[in-house]
């Protein structure tokens, strides 16, 4: 559907961006206007942070954007980790496992496939791309029941596979890695390696993969976000709460408020949500350098 994109050569990216930027005069008005946008994006996060310091009662009694009388953040964190026999750390570990297997696998598959589509002009290549983009248009939540029935026949519902296999599918990563391969891996290098007699997979792992690193990290991060935030598929697939990822666990805590005899723990829901968001934000901040260059290279021109 999208015409094969062409990428501006990476080499041209270098010239002196720093100098140019320093040469520009700073503009206060523009800064203030952009700061308004930041206020908009940070306000709900501030609410989350402030709310995590409140007890269940404080949460319902106090002004949303300011602290309640009692500062209960550490209490809440302690309770999040010990509530229901300490299941939260288990959910955290599950999520890490799903992320490593799912997002890691998805990144590997899409890197392989993206590279393959980019470097081998084989027959059927365009058809592959069209079919994949077409399939992306079909809403996955609407496919939930067929997928469930399919997995039930395979006997893998209520198992980690039911969460991992669907997350292995990342069309955006494929797209990213395809365009990235076009740019970052010069065909000449591959040709000379072939002349030297190296096998294709050896070339991929030894030569191409290091060159693809920024793109791979970017794809990985986006896949991590997707996997980390995955809720509705696990909701349908999993019954054993020891297998839950963290989002589903928090969702069930939230549901307790709607249950007869259920323990109402909005404070744990909020603190649990905050704790679940922090690792992702940390990952993005720490790996900023990688994914920014990866995204830059992945940007396309018609």
């Amino acid at each position: 559907m999208v015409a094969a994109p062409t990428i501006r050569p990476a080499a041209r990216r270098q010239p002196l961006p720093k100098k140019r930027r320093q040469a520009q005069p700073r503009n206060k008005t523009l800064t203030v206007v952009t700061a308004l946008m930041v206020a908009y994006t940070l306000l709900p996060l501030a609410w989350l942070l402030i709310s995590a310091t409140k007890t269940q009662e404080g949460l319902l009694d106090s002004f949303g954007l300011w602290f309640a009388d009692d500062f209960a953040l550490f209490d809440n964190i302690g309770r999040v980790f010990t509530y229901q026999d300490g299941i939260y750390p288990r959910w955290l570990l599950n999520t890490v496992f799903y992320v490593v297997a799912g997002a890691g696998g998805a990144t590997l598959l899409s890197t392989l496939a993206g590279y393959g589509l980019s470097k081998f002009a084989f027959r059927g290549r365009r058809a592959v791309f069209a079919v994949i983009l077409g399939a992306v248009a079909v809403p996955p939540t609407a496919l939930a029941v067929p997928t469930f029935l399919l997995f039930a026949k395979m006997g893998i519902t209520d198992s980690p596979w039911a969460v991992i296999i669907p997350t292995l599918m990342a069309p955006f990563s494929l797209y990213l890695m395809w365009t990235f391969s076009n740019e970052a891996v010069p065909n000449e290098i591959l040709e000379s390696a072939r002349v030297d007699g190296a096998g294709e997979f050896r070339i991929f792992f030894k030569l191409a993969l290091p060159l693809l690193a920024p793109g791979t990290v970017t794809a990985l991060l986006f896949n991590v976000v997707m996997t980390w935030n995955n809720l509705f598929l696990p909701l349908i697939m999993l019954k054993d709460r020891h297998l839950y990822p963290i989002t589903l666990g928090i969702y069930t805590w939230n549901q307790q408020s709607q249950t007869v005899g259920g323990d109402v723990v909005f404070n744990l829901v909020i603190t649990g949500s905050l704790l679940a968001v922090i690792p992702l934000i940390a990952a993005f901040l720490l790996l900023q350098r990688y994914w920014q260059s990866g995204l830059a290279a992945g940007s396309v021109k018609q």
Binding site: L112, A113, G116, K119, F120, A121, I165, E200, F204
Partner: peptide, 19 residues
């Protein structure tokens, strides 16, 4: 072509199953 398909095949297998 054959090698190209080998690179794409794992992705397509999952794609077939999940989508």
């Amino acid at each position: 072509t054959w090698i190209g398909w080998q690179f794409v095949a794992p992705f397509l297998a999952v794609f077939a199953l999940v989508f």
